[in-house]
Amino acid sequence: MSDQLIQEAPLVGIKSKLAAAFVKGPKDFGLVERAFMTHVTLRGDPDSPAFRGAVEEVLQLALPSGQTITASASGCSAVWMGPDEWLIQSVEETGPELERALRQALAGEHHAVVDVSSGYTVFELSGRRVREVLAKGCPLDLHPKVFPVGCSTQSHFFKAGITVLHIAEELYQLVVRRSFAEYACLMLLDAADEFIR
């Protein structure tokens, strides 16, 4: 946890720009960086009971098999990324710990576990205009009928790849690659211009 103090978030270069952007406040649209979350990429055969069993034992959650998110009681969640790929998120454990635990549990099963915590950052988007802001650069249909709370999927926002998580009504998370974070954030602020300025 002492690392927390010296870790640097991907948006460090535009901190002040971000703070100054919300002239009207975040009533209609809010954007907060949730940096330093743990992210671990997990690959394996979803049809292997041994694989699923081992993972579910460690994470205390059921791996999703469609474009959804599952969560454990302890704040760990699994995001479906592809037919044999999940992104494990946690605010509790560190990446190396989680990586080690999963690798140990999966010994003997064909799998891949990779700590990518520093490779991604998370934007939390809130407000009644979130969907409109995302629609400026993302071709997904995010209507709640189509993409209800608990859903996740990948797409692009302008030219940055994104993973969109629908956390709660009018609350979304975008998982963005670190090196695209500043670009994606500036594009989001630009898209939200009419709602925050």
Binding site: P10, K136, F158, A160, R178, S179, F180, Y183, A184, D190
Partner: peptide
Amino acid sequence: RELGDYLDPIRKTC
């Protein structure tokens, strides 16, 4: 909006 600095992503290292 994809003009000037927004034309293409500008990627930066840590």
